[in-house]
Design a protein around this nucleic acid. Structure first.
Length: 503
DNA sequence: GTCACTCATCGTTGCGTTGC
DNA sequence: GCAACGCAACGATGAGTGAC
């Protein structure tokens, strides 16, 4: 195990240096040639131009697809660097004027993608696929692109399918139920497990499940693309936003990602956190975006072998004496599990070749100055006293509950202790989540303006005098709802305030 | 019969989306 | 607005299977 970056570099630095110096980067900002010049010229046709560092990332990705003929590439960039802008610009350079690009993203980002495409690509035809029904896909199937077409789809809409119900015939007897195959009439041992699409009659292989017409009547868009669109030709480019959310092998989202990778000629994966600490998190993403390379390294069904090669595994051997009637024996059980940690070799073997990494610092020159600091404010003495008593009472109750194996108070304790300092004038009560018994109580503290609120008002007034607007984010906006109290005090101080709620 | 291995299942907390 | 659902991430356990 490696503790710090210093230790990491001490252990792996030489190996990394050797491998990196051996590899020839496909794109270098200091050695641009005719290809880059032509692409830079084409970038000027966009409605808004990428920042210089963003343009370099776009050129590198485009070159990876066009020159090195990669099928899938990764853009791993920190929040705020402009992943959306870079992906849209890449699609502009990569795809012909009559082309189709599919974007899968979290549902709340669909409108943002649509807006940014319209602001960036001249004469783009943008379609919101994140609606129920397959109408748009049916139309796509029978037509060819007439311009640069973009289809934006939320990951939930991509995966959601109809519900399944039993396809077996059931017979109610006086005191029990029996099931039979609807095709051959064979008697079944039990009701079929409809969660598995593989459940079939053992005798005639008839599927023993069917669509449940009494629930949501819908069809997964990914499944439709898989069944009705040509492999590798349905879309010129598939952009998977927040791709780390699709890393699992057999979840519905992971399957949808795999289907769209297969349906498109190229796949561009966007994320801020490509590696979540475990090597296995990259296994299916790499298999689905670079199947040819991965097939030379490890079998699709050998995620464990991949973890052993590129990650950290722990082997636990449990032994126990196990005498038989006429023998003396010892049995052991070995379990191998993956632990956090990734070999740097994964960078040189798989990632450097097909990734662009970008940090916020890289585009910092084009962004307004930014700094973060913590402003600490003391609790008023009466509130501090009550907070201490409340905390002690809660801790005692939680310890007693934990001794009984009841962990349900932990969340309540955390939220109550976080909320009381800001909501002191309302008091705080903690009830048991299941029994509703009163666990602990903190009194209301009458206070016109809390010190923290006063400090916030001073900061907002200072910004206002400098001609700047202020965005204030706070927690506890649901059951406790601290927003009205804060708005009231800001307005009393002569500040114009608007509450922006999620719904 | 033993062993190594895979697969399925359960339970937990928190978050977000969908359907009603 | 609420319930249901899906997902991540982890640990634990038991059933089933094939090689030896």
């Amino acid at each position: 195990m490696v503790g710090s970056l210093k230790e990491f570099l001490a252990e792996y630095g030489n190996m990394l240096l050797t491998n990196v110096s051996r590899s020839q980067p496909l794109y270098s900002p200091d050695a641009e040639g005719a290809f880059e010049a032509a692409m830079r010229e084409r970038l000027t046709k966009l409605l808004r131009t990428p920042f210089p560092k963003q343009a370099e990332a776009v050129l590198a990705l485009t070159k990876g697809f066009k020159v090195r003929k990669h099928r899938g590439l990764f853009l791993t960039a920190e929040m705020g660097t402009g992943k959306t802008m870079m992906a849209i610009s890449t699609s502009f350079l990569l795809c012909p004027p009559k082309s189709r690009t599919l974007i899968m993203c979290p549902g709340h980002l669909v409108q943002k993608w649509i807006r940014e495409i319209k602001e960036t690509i001249p004469d783009a035809h943008v379609v919101n696929l994140n609606r129920s029904g397959l109408g748009m896909l049916l139309e796509l199937k029978s037509t060819k692109p007439t311009q640069r077409e973009y289809y934006v789809l939320g990951k939930e809409q991509a995966k959601l399918h109809y519900a399944r119900t039993s396809g077996a015939a059931s017979f109610q007897h006086r005191d029990h139920i029996t099931w039979t195959c609807p095709r051959c009439g064979s008697t079944l041992d039990s009701e079929p497990n409809v969660r598995s699409r593989r459940v079939r009659c053992e005798r005639c292989k008839e599927p023993l499940w069917q669509a449940d017409g009494n629930r949501f009547r819908r069809y997964s868009k990914a499944e439709y693309v898989k069944r009705h669109f040509p492999r590798g030709k349905a879309f010129n480019l598939f952009i998977a936003d927040e791709v780390h959310q699709y890393k699992a092998g057999d979840t519905a989202q992971g399957q949808a990602f795999a289907i769209f990778c297969n349906a498109a000629k190229h796949t561009l994966c966007l994320t801020g956190t490509l590696m979540g600490g475990y090597s296995s998190g990259l296994f299916y993403l790499l298999w689905r975006t670079s199947p040819r390379t991965m097939s030379q390294i490890v079998d699709y069904h050998s995620i464990k072998a991949f973890s052993e090669r590129y990650g950290v595994t722990e082997q636990v051997i449990k032994t126990s004496d196990k005498d038989g009637r006429a023998s003396i024996g010892r049995s052991s059980r070995v379990t191998v599990r993956e632990r956090p940690g990734i070999s740097p070799q994964i960078l040189t073997d798989l990632l450097l070749e097909r990734s662009v990494f970008m940090r916020l610092e890289d585009v910092a020159d084009n962004l307004p100055p930014f700094s973060e600091y913590v402003e600490t404010v003391e609790l008023p003495s009466d509130l501090a006293g009550e907070y201490g008593k409340f905390k002690d009472a809660l801790e005692g109750e939680v310890k007693r509950a934990l001794a009984r194996g009841d962990r349900s108070l932990l969340g309540a304790m955390l939220q109550a202790l976080l909320a009381y300092p800001d909501g002191a004038r309302r008091g705080e009560k903690v009830l048991h989540p299941t029994t509703d018994d009163l666990i602990a109580e903190a009194p209301e503290i009458p206070c016109d303006v809390l010190p923290k609120e006063q400090r916030l008002i001073e900061i907002v007034q200072r910004e206002k005098e400098a001609g700047r607007k202020v965005l204030v984010c706070l927690e506890h906006t649901g059951t406790r709802d601290l927003i009205p109290d804060l708005v009231e005090r800001l307005e009393a101080a002569g500040l114009k305030t608007a509450a922006l709620r999620a719904t």
